[in-house]
Design a protein around this nucleic acid. Sequence first.
DNA 1: AAGGGCGATGAATCTCTAT
DNA 2: AATAGAGATTCATCGCCCT
Lengths: 250, 250
Amino acid sequence: MTWTIHHGDALAVLPTLPTASVGCIITDPPYNSGGRTATERRSDSIRGKYVNGNAKHALADFAGDNRDQRSFGYWLTLVLSECLRVAEPGASALVFTDWRQLPATSDALQAAGWTWRGVIPWRKPISRPCRDGFRRECEYVLWASSGPPARHPEPVYLPGLVEGSQPRGKERRHITQKPVAVLRQLVRVSPPGAVVLDPFAGAGSTGVAALAEDRAFIGCEITEHYATIARERLTAAAADGAGAVGEPVG
Amino acid sequence: MTWTIHHGDALAVLPTLPTASVGCIITDPPYNSGGRTATERRSDSIRGKYVNGNAKHALADFAGDNRDQRSFGYWLTLVLSECLRVAEPGASALVFTDWRQLPATSDALQAAGWTWRGVIPWRKPISRPCRDGFRRECEYVLWASSGPPARHPEPVYLPGLVEGSQPRGKERRHITQKPVAVLRQLVRVSPPGAVVLDPFAGAGSTGVAALAEDRAFIGCEITEHYATIARERLTAAAADGAGAVGEPVG
DNA sequence: AAGGGCGATGAATCTCTAT
DNA sequence: AATAGAGATTCATCGCCCT
């Protein structure tokens, strides 16, 4: 299957894509959680928020994680509106979020014109316990569609909850990287052969999952460092395809 | 441990309870979901909305499931404000909701003055599949506290996700009945000996779980039919207590 | 008593028809 | 044309009966 990684801001790249050209959107926007105060959220370093002070890995920061909640909602609505334009009628959108931004993310999806269809918890077996409280064990995937959802040629029934630990060791290239096994399950919400779009591609895991499931992929990543990593991983993933020639486009 | 079931509307009963007298609130308010249109959501019969046409059981309808979304939020804020007054400083509130009402419920909790602390998915192994989409497998428990959460004398670490099937067969007394095993895990967010309050007690499962975990219980139920069932179940649960004499109060 | 087989069912959703 | 109502649908799970 073919793939493309655009290097640039989602709000600059999405308008260049043709209307109704994409069958599925799967993405993990930078959601500024963590810091309780606007000041904490606007702190310069992502690592300070998401990574233990003594963590040994040296993953690069990512951009766009310093909005306050109001402008997060506004900005995400703009992005998701462009995604709706680019989406074919009946396409699904799957948007990752944490518990704190779930309401703002569902508002943005609906404000952008998507029909909200459900929530899929993502359970991370490796997660922090919390004294005298509940472990923070799940993130969430919001599921929406552009109008009535398209019917697949062959019916599929997908799970209501996905499980998988974040990649560790040298598999891990990005601070918020998702397991490919989880993304492969999500990709199946699109019909086989669909084009999958990820406007915040990061290290490209959505694309790796899309190619593995015989879908095409268009990604967009603002940080040069990660765009390069994504291209490397997608080249490798395309070569892995059973007999399929990896054909990077664009 | 002692227990009470008040028969009446939560908004009438809560104001009669003393300020700062309760250590934990666990409840499942009637959240009017289901139905594509406002009219369908406001339909008179719960069975018509939520139960398979050919289901054989004959469980009674429950009250209060006919609000539109705006008044749901308004009404729930009123209830949760009274709950906050009744709660001791540091008390937790655990509020069940489905995916559709999760944002409105988190708004109501915060508007009422509670500090939102997290979401615990409840996974139900028995759930409906969805063609070409994700099974609706989870409901959600929103966790909040009245100011900074109280410390337990002995630390406890609770799960970030709870699992359990709805009671079936003759165990089942209410359409939306929760498994006691799930509620027992949730009750542990309160210190041992605390008073647990459920303003929408239904068939009283929260009380059964509270007694089993050595907490006292105050419940409130508007439908006479269910208030009676709750009293029966609590009487039995108190008698089951290892040596403890069941002492209904009020 | 343990285990296999059968059947019921889920805090719906979707389609089609009648008003 | 919008709304209301009736009927079909889908499968993992679990109760219950029968060996």
